[in-house]
Amino acid sequence: MFKIFKYSFYDLMRSRWNYVYLLFYLALGLVLLFVSTSLSKAILTLMNIIILLVPLIGTVFGIMYYYSSKEFTELLLALPLKRSSIFLGQYFGVAISLSLSLVIGLGIPFVIYGIFQSADIWHFGQLLILGTFLSFIFSGISYNIALHNENRIKGFGFAILAWLFMAVIYDGIFMIALVMLHEYPLEKFSLIFSIFNPIDLSRIMMLLKLDISAMLGYTGALFKMFFGNYLGSTIAMLILALWTITPVFILKWRSAKKDF
């Protein structure tokens, strides 16, 4: 697996798109730090961009890499290699190169700015960790979708739909549910609802760390209590880990059963 990972990783690291992605984050970080009055504000804006963009780019890269390397994958399948190691190797290649672009792209401007001397280092660190989780989760989901769909257009469509669902539609449904059920006490419901969407979970974990959490007011109290204690944040991290591992296992399992 490691060999395949190595080659996929090198291949991606040399791809133009990966550089575009890296440069985008680099530019974003620099501009944000230049424009924002405080680090905390820059991190908040960054969070908004990350929860939108990281899942989208993860999805698109995952699906594109699978389809573009499909024939090559078939070549590999005829070699004396274990199937699962081919797919897992490729998947980790995508996920890790994406995460590295994110971490390096944003890391450089913030390090230059002096994040290590700032109290916001933990918030920034958490943001990068969450971004990495989201990269893994969404490239994993899209890799599975690609594996499931021979038709590229269909696969691409489903992957974008999956992203759209998690990023937007889920919250829309959530909001409609909140409005329709507004006579009932809903804190627990909203806690549970938002925990099961990795994008929402990442956003809330980040919000609670930043100044803006004050706006969550009464409702935020339960969230703060939950995420504030050791158990809660462990659970949150576990759920993110579960979101990361599940696609990997499904990938392993489905790739073993697939004809090429």
Binding site: S69, K70, E71, F72, L75, L79, L81
Partner: peptide, 15 residues
Amino acid sequence: YRQDIDYLPQIANFP
């Protein structure tokens, strides 16, 4: 067992 096999696929599309 694939160590004993060389295979030339129909359409070769490399990275």
